[in-house]
Amino acid sequence: MFDPAVLAQILWTGLATSSYMVLFTIAFSLVLKVMKLWNFAQAGMMAIAFYAMYAAVNRFAWPTAAAVVFGLAVTLAATLAFEIWGLRTLRARRSSSLLFFIFTLVCSEFAAYVLTLVFGTEPVTLFPEILSPVRVIGQIAVSDWDLLGVGVTLALGIALALYLRFSRDGQFVLAVSDNAELAELYGIDAKRVYLVAFSIATVFVCAGMYLYGSRTAVIPTAPLQLMLFAVIATLLGGMGSVLGGALAAVGLSLLQSYSVLFIPSQWQGLILYVFLFVTILFFPGGVRRGFKAA
């Protein structure tokens, strides 16, 4: 088992599998960073994104590209409606952060119930076939899905970093995330920035659900479980650090993958909960900050 080829295969497959988790984590931590919102409604958005693409592919027989655009459009519409008619109302009322949290959770459950009524509860994959072509590079099996996952995640991650660093709108996003009230004093429209942040998160959510749904069967309530991973990664990476969250997602995925060398496979899922437990108790501000403080 400790053969270099095996270790390299676990590394590659772990990286590929972490792709959608990284995308979900970036979406979650970006919204948290900019809006200070624990957005559990993201699970609802993930479900909407998947089922919109699923309907386009399987019910309307649209080509993949059109299905992705459709999924993006539907999810964006739902996300912006959630911000404009939901969150803005709560902000206007100066609602407590607990109410914001409950509202996002309720929206998520609402989306899952509606999708259950429309699409049923049978597990479905985005495409009828889940197998993707494989090539062996060195001694490592590399599938088209792996390459797509790693490629899309890297491309979107770099694009986001460049956008935040070099574009005017990106600078506004960073300014609002640092101090929304001060940013508004300098003439930055915080409401617009929130819409931008949600739009970016939607792109990451759609990409993640495309990758996940093309390999694994989905039911309307499945995204909530995936969200838990994003929450743990965000906590580990340090709340407010999008890059930290993304790296934590990669680290957690690799840790789960390599854990089979030491523990039986059925215990892999437990690792996440152990990390959640330890992080909340000992590193509430994230591992990096925790060590700095120490």
């Binding site: 676990i10 694994t216 479980q225 993958s257 089979v260 039986p264 892999q268």
Partner: peptide
């Protein structure tokens, strides 16, 4: 080897 009912990646096993 057993796998977790919620698992989606079985490569280690």
């Amino acid at each position: 080897e057993a796998y977790d009912p919620k698992a989606t990646d079985y490569s280690g096993m």
